[in-house]
Structure formats: structure tokens, C-alpha cells
């Protein structure tokens, strides 16, 4: 953290974003762009978006981008990567997209050891459609479709990293958070390692980011960060679940 000052990464286009005040999608976008610029990969990247509040990622990033259907991004990324094996190919998916409708595509992408990266934004609910319960919703958490708080009969939180870490094809799997500057730095390091894993041809990588959705949580941006730290982290412990040899 010796480096002083800050400049917008050139790989992020300068335009107004649709994200709500304090939405952590913006931080995630910025970190991805920073890492791509630092690795000098802007011209070698194909970003695969998803359907959710990250749906406009291809309009915000200044590199080639694809907007697939809800949940299918890992399959689309597989198609891209098989044709362009030397490109950096990553998906950017929310928890509804990845851990509900797209579970099959995500799991089998990891199981095949597809040499792509998934950036997974876990904000515990369906943000874009107005805050409905997702498989990642915390126990007791109130959403528009768990109005009394998520109870046992509505299932239990889905820990994707822990599951994917059991897949032999998964090379790098990490869960990070964005609730303070130290966590943001750690998150950036994880993205870097995931991309390095991919560029070294080591296999599938995923970075899950615990991410605040102040709007649907009904919290101020600051309270929402506290909610991530105090409520989300106990259910979704942070850390690197798998790190390949050769990516230190």
C-alpha cells in the first residue's frame, strides 16, 4: 500500500453507471478493470456478462464483450475459450445467475476444468428483479419472497466455493469481500491470481465477492458494508479454498 494516488483504469469507460448509490458491483467492476490493465490484457480479453444488475458490464468495460442469457455465461465462455485459447475469458455473474438458474453451467465448467475465470458477485438475492430470495439468501433474511425471513422450509444458504473446491478441474477458488479498503485490496489480489491461473493455463478459477446491495437490503451504503462483515461473512467464510502450484 505504499503506492500513492489513484487513476481510473483506462479499461473502464468513463460514463454514468446505473448502479445504485453504494452498490458494490461498481467496486467489483473497477477491480476487474484495474487487474486487466495491470496485466496489460485489455486487447486480449473477452468479457462474458450475465443477466442481473451486472448486465451492462459490456457497456462499461473497454474491451470485447458478450451479453448471454440468464445463467448460461460459463457455457458461452467455454465456447469462446475453445476457439480463442490464448485470450483472457471471464464471466461476471450474480448469485441468482450463477447459483440458481446457472448452477449446472457453472458446476460443469469447473468440473471440465475449463480454463476460464468466473467473477461471482454474491449479494444474497436477486437485485435486478427487486430483491427476491436466492439460494444464497441468509437464514432469517427478509426478502420480497421470504417476507418472514428465510426459514428452513425455504432451504439453506448455498456455499458455492466450498462445493467447487471439490472439483478437480477447479484450480483457483477464493471468496473475498468488499466491506473495507483492506478487503478490497485482498479482493483485487484474488482476481489477479485467478487471471494468472488462467493465463498460465492451469484450469478453472473463480472469485466470489461478498457484495453489498444497499437498495434491496434497505440499508444505507455504510450499514450495508457492515451487514456484509457481520452477517454474510459468518455464513460465507472468506479465504482461498484452492490455489494452484505456480500462483503464489
Amino acid at each position: 500500500m505504499a503506492k500513492k494516488g489513484y487513476m481510473r483504469p483506462p479499461t473502464l469507460l468513463q460514463k454514468p453507471w446505473h448502479f445504485c448509490p453504494g452498490c458494490n458491483h461498481g467496486i467489483a467492476h473497477r477491480l476487474v478493470a484495474e487487474v486487466i490493465d495491470e496485466m496489460g490484457l485489455q486487447n486480449q480479453t473477452v468479457g462474458v456478462g450475465s443477466v442481473g444488475c451486472g448486465v451492462f458490464s459490456y457497456e462499461y468495460f473497454n474491451f470485447d464483450g458478450i451479453g448471454p442469457s440468464h445463467g448460461r455465461s460459463p457455457a458461452v465462455a467455454t465456447g469462446v475459450k475453445r476457439v480463442l485459447p490464448d485470450r483472457l475469458v471471464f464471466t461476471y455473474q450474480g448469485d441468482g445467475d450463477l447459483a440458481a438458474i446457472g448452477t449446472t453451467e457453472m458446476v460443469h465448467c469447473a468440473v471440465r476444468g475449463e480454463n476460464i475465470t468466473i467473477i461471482f458477485i454474491n449479494n444474497t438475492l436477486y437485485g435486478m428483479t427487486g430483491g427476491q430470495m436466492a439460494p444464497t439468501t441468509l437464514m432469517g433474511q427478509v426478502t420480497t419472497t421470504s417476507p418472514r425471513g428465510r426459514g428452513r422450509e425455504q432451504g439453506l444458504p448455498f456455499r458455492v466455493c466450498e462445493m467447487l473446491a471439490t472439483a478437480e478441474g477447479a484450480a483457483y477458488v477464493a471468496r473475498v469481500a468488499l466491506f473495507n479498503p483492506a478487503q478490497v485490496n485482498r479482493a483485487k489480489k484474488a482476481i489477479r491470481r485467478a487471471f494468472e491461473t488462467q493465463m498460465a493455463g492451469l484450469g478453472f478459477s473463480m472469485v466470489e465477492m461478498l457484495s453489498a446491495c444497499p437498495t434491496n437490503w434497505g440499508l444505507s451504503p455504510l450499514e450495508a458494508l457492515k451487514y456484509v462483515e457481520e452477517k454474510m461473512v459468518p455464513t460465507y467464510p472468506l479465504g482461498e479454498f484452492k490455489v494452484p502450484e505456480g500462483v503464489k
Binding site: 448471454p68 458461452v76 467455454t78 469462446v80 475453445r82 476457439v83
Partner: peptide, 12 residues
């Protein structure tokens, strides 16, 4: 998945 892989490969 197959058809979405087709989508990706065609886009690429």
C-alpha cells in the same frame, strides 16, 4: 449448455 457454447464459439 451445448447451444450456449455454440453462441460463444460463434461470437468468437
Amino acid at each position: 449448455s451445448a447451444i450456449n457454447m455454440v453462441f460463444g464459439a460463434a461470437a468468437a
